[in-house]
Simulated assay, not measured.
Amino acid sequence: MAATPSSHSVVLAWGSGEDGQLGMGDSEEKDWVCCVKFLESENVTAVVAGSRNSLAICESGHLFTWGWNQRGTLGHAPATKTESLPSLVESLAAANVKIVQAAIGGWHCLAVDDQGRAYAWGGNEYGQCGEEPERKEDGTRAPRRDIMTPQRCAPKLSVRQVAAGGTHSVVLTRDGHVWTWGQPWPPGDIKQICTPVRVHGLERVRLIAVGAFHNLALLEDGTLWAWGNNEYGQLGTGDTQPRSHPIPVQGLSGLTLVDIAAGGWHSTALTDNGEVYAWGRGEHGRLGFGDDKSSKMVPQKVQLLAGEDIVQVSCGGTHSVACTRDGRMFSYGRGDHGRLGYGRKVTTGHPMEVPIDLPPPRNCLSARGRWCSKFVACGGRHTLAIATWIDEPEESLLS
Rank of each mutant, 00 (worst) to 15 (best):
E395M: 11
E29Y: 14
C153L: 07
C194G: 12
K301C: 12
D309F: 06
E308L: 15
S399V: 09
T4L: 13
P351Y: 03
W389E: 05
W32C: 10
I260P: 11
G307L: 07
G238R: 09
D336N: 15
A217F: 03
E275W: 02
L235M: 10
A94Y: 05
V47N: 00
V97K: 11
R339Q: 15
W185C: 05
G228K: 03
I57D: 00
V313M: 11
H350L: 02
E392S: 09
A367I: 03
W279C: 07
G139K: 09
G380T: 04
D31P: 08
G335W: 07
G333M: 02
I57N: 00
G188L: 08
H337A: 12
L397A: 12
G122K: 05
I99Y: 00
F289Y: 09
L398I: 10
G222W: 04
R198S: 07
P187F: 08
L257I: 14
T256C: 12
L340I: 06
C364F: 03
R370P: 01
G264R: 14
Q234I: 04
T237Y: 08
S169A: 14
E231N: 15
A56Q: 04
A385N: 08
I99H: 01
L340W: 05
E395N: 04
A367C: 07
E220G: 13
N69L: 03
Q115G: 04
H350W: 01
A77I: 10
Q183K: 04
F38C: 02
R286K: 15
V171S: 05
P133F: 12
R286N: 07
C372Q: 11
W66H: 03
L85F: 08
S267I: 12
G165F: 06
F64G: 02
E132T: 12
D326L: 09
A94K: 15
I193F: 05
V249G: 11
S331E: 08
N273A: 00
T388W: 00
E18G: 13
E59H: 11
Q161N: 01
V112W: 02
R145Y: 05
S7E: 12
S54G: 10
A94S: 15
K30C: 14
D309L: 03
N43G: 00
T383D: 04
V276Q: 02
L88I: 11
A77E: 12
G285F: 05
C378G: 06
I310Q: 06
W227A: 04
H200Y: 06
T73S: 15
D26C: 13
D114C: 10
